[in-house]
Structures are given as structure tokens and as C-alpha cells.
Nucleic acid binder design. Sequence first.
RNA 1: GGGGGAAUGUCCCGAGCGGCAAAGGGGGCGGACUGUAAAUCCGCUGGCUACGCCUUCGCAGGUUCGAGUCCUGCUUCCCCCA
Length: 420
Amino acid sequence: MSNDFRPKSDFLVTLQERGYIHQCSDLAGVDEKAKAGELVAYIGFDCTAPSLHIGSLVQIMMMRWLQKTGGKPVPLMGGGTTQVGDPSGKDESRKLLSLDQIGANKEGIKQVFAKFLTFGEGKTDAFMTDNAEWLGALKYIDFLREVGRHFSVNRMMAMDSVKMRLERDQELSFIEFNYMCLQAYDFVELNRRHGINLQMGGSDQWGNIITGMDLGRRMGRPQLYALTSPLLTTASGAKMGKTASGAIWLNADMLPVYDYWQYWRNTEDADVGRFLRLFTELPMDEIRRLENLGGAEINEAKKILANEATAMLHGREGAEAAADTARKTFEEGVLASSLPTIEVTQAEYAAGIGMLTAFVKAGLVPSTGEARRQIKGGGLRVNDVAVSDERALLAASDLTAEGVVKLSLGKKKHILLKPV
RNA sequence: GGGGGAAUGUCCCGAGCGGCAAAGGGGGCGGACUGUAAAUCCGCUGGCUACGCCUUCGCAGGUUCGAGUCCUGCUUCCCCCA
């Protein structure tokens, strides 16, 4: 979209060569601000879950690059807007979250930013904001008179998020219809309060961001800018961050570090280069070398991707531990005691745990019925030996030298069962 | 306000003469082949103390030996008329 523009600022050069840019209201304008070190940008995050997942990582990385190249990033918690609900990209409205839930989610989400950004009082230091601060205090009539009058319903009806619902005959409630007004107002308010002049976000936010830019102009604010990142899908078309077993959460208490590492390790060949650019900070020539590895050698690139991406979020140590666990498990075929482990009491173990129950307990299968089916298909293994008798009990003889039993579903998912 | 239509396996779409644990897809999981990849092929895709038992077709009743299927009321959604 913007490939013919040749930016001069470190910020845009980096974003462009790494593939972060989908649309921008004014590349030249942003470039100038960035070069002058005057870029203050925010990205809003709705508090709909207790943790962000990989889907938000591109946005977080954009803020990280902004900070590294002399700009000031401002994460905005959607403490207010989450109470309303963003209709963008959703084909049906979701239920309203309670205030308690939103508050709890907010606390969970906040944590992750400290790992990617430097907070403080300095010029490029990040600080946290929450739109509940100003949205919560709004008076309806005042808001309508001061802000609402600048919105054209005609234009709002033409926006993708609205049009989609109307075309499919799906309900769009009035409260959701107001979402874009509030987000637009956020942009203006953040400019007033903190001099923020750029809003970034995923491509699904383009309409909302532009609306805010426009509102700023109508309300006499200085020029505001919009920049969005492409919506990420894997090469086979799946949405990023969603796997069968659930979303790839960023918070460690929602997803073990090992699983996070594994997610990156299992990247499709065709995605390796793109992901290295977006989710690591390796130099570009190194990335070009890695993505051109042929055949099985590309696995080396995947390991580096996993290490780098995991280290950024969970620290170098956590990444190395995960890599080590994976190496033992997949390459050396030895038992890694660092695999995710669940514990049972000695007494419970001695009393005899049924095969089916053990796998359910380990969380590898959701029900004994599923365990039965997997056994029939040869999908369950105990200490790497396929289970054939669903009625067998785990015995003392199943314990390895380390005093654990390794339960596996398929080739990739392993859990240790440990009597304590 | 009047008339017509729709709701199905809690991932989604979607068939379903009164005998149905309910066709077919998609997705997902597992197996084979590989490189912890993709593509391809095969199997599975309600629960359980399991040759049997239990719970499912918007909700609540009714008819029937038997109801997703018929009747009544209700809820929600869509379409046409006013």
C-alpha cells in the first residue's frame, strides 16, 4: 500500500521494512513528526479477557519500535469503552461485561506492557492511561452538544463495522453504535491531555481511528495521524493466536512458557520470514538469511524465532528452558523433567489410577469418552508406548527413574504425572 | 397493529415420512507420510461406574406404546403489509 513512499525517519523505515504498515493517513506527516522526535502515539486495548493474546502482539511491537526510535508510546486501557463494546469485526454483539470483570481483566492485561516498554517520566518513556478516567465522567447532554454534533449518522452508517451488521440483518444495538464516538473522543481527549498525535491499531480499527482524526479537526485540535497494521493470518489462512486448545495468551499464568515457545516453533514454513520481522528484533540481513534456509534447515530458523519471541515476553532464561525441554523431548527423545507437570498424592497413585482418568486429569483430553476414542486411534501414550488397554491401571512399574509418568497425546503434547 | 417464516448435536453451517444419539459439510483432534512444516490419504468428532445407562433438536405443556418431527401457549429473530 505504501511501498513507493521512502520514509526518512528510523521509525517508519523500521515499520515499513518489517511489514507493520497497512494503512496510514499521511505517511509524510508521520515521517516528519517522527524525525523531529515529536511522535506521541497511543494504542487502545479493550479489557475483554484477563490477558492479551498473540493477536495484540503486532500492536505492542509497534509501540516498542516507536520507543526505540525516539517516540513516546502510550498504552490505553479501554476501561470505559469495554463497558460499551466494540462492534468492529464482530458479526454479533457480545454480552456486556460486568464492571468487576472489566477491572480484573484490566489488571491482567496491564502486566504485559512492562515487558515490552520502558515506563517512567522521561521523554520517550511510556505511561499507562485508561479511558474510564474521562469517559466515566461524561454527561450525556454535554457530550451530545460538544462532541455528538460533529458526527454524521449518514457517514457512520457507511462504516464497515456498521454496514456489515446491516447487510447481514444482524442486530447492532445503540450502545455499540456509540462505540466509535467514544473512541474518537478518546483520541481528542488524549491529544488535549497528553499531546498525543498518532493513533495506531489493527486494520479493523481504521474506521474508528479515522473518525477520531476527523473529530480532532472539527474540534480544533492540531493535526492527528492514523496508522494501522495488517490483520495477521497464517499462510494457511487461520487467524493468528487461536489454536484448538485456545488462544495463545501472553500472560504466563494463562499459558505456560513452554507452550508459548512451542507455538512459535510450529510456525508454518511460509510464515517464518514474516514472523521474524514482526515478532523479533533480529537485524534484517540475519532475517533474510534465516528465511532462505531450504528444506529441513528452516527448522533452525523456527527455533530462533521461538527463542527470540519467547525471550522478549518471558525473558531469556524462560526461553532457554523451553528450548531445552523441547530439545530433550523431540530431538534426544529423553524425558525432560521440565515438561508441564501435574501432581497426585502417593496414596491416590497407589490405589490405582485408571488409564482414562489419568489422561483426563492431565488435561490432555476433555472426557473419558474422548480418551477412549484417542486410544482407538493410537493417539495416547504412556512413557512413549501407545496405550492399548483402556482399562489398565497406572502401576508403580510405570514410574520412570525420575518418579514420574509421561503421558502424551499425539506427538507434541506431553504432561508428566507425578505422585507426591 | 395484521400476515408469513425461522430456531437442530453448546465451535460453525446445515438435512431431518412419528422409532434418532439424529444425514452431509466446514473446523478441530488423532493416525500414516514428513522436517515438531505444508500438501495428501485414513480414522474420530454427546456424557458415564459402558455389550448397558443417562442427557440432547429455542422454552413450557399436551397427543402417542413412542416426538426433533403432530397440537397449544410462550420467548427471540427475520420478511411483507399498516
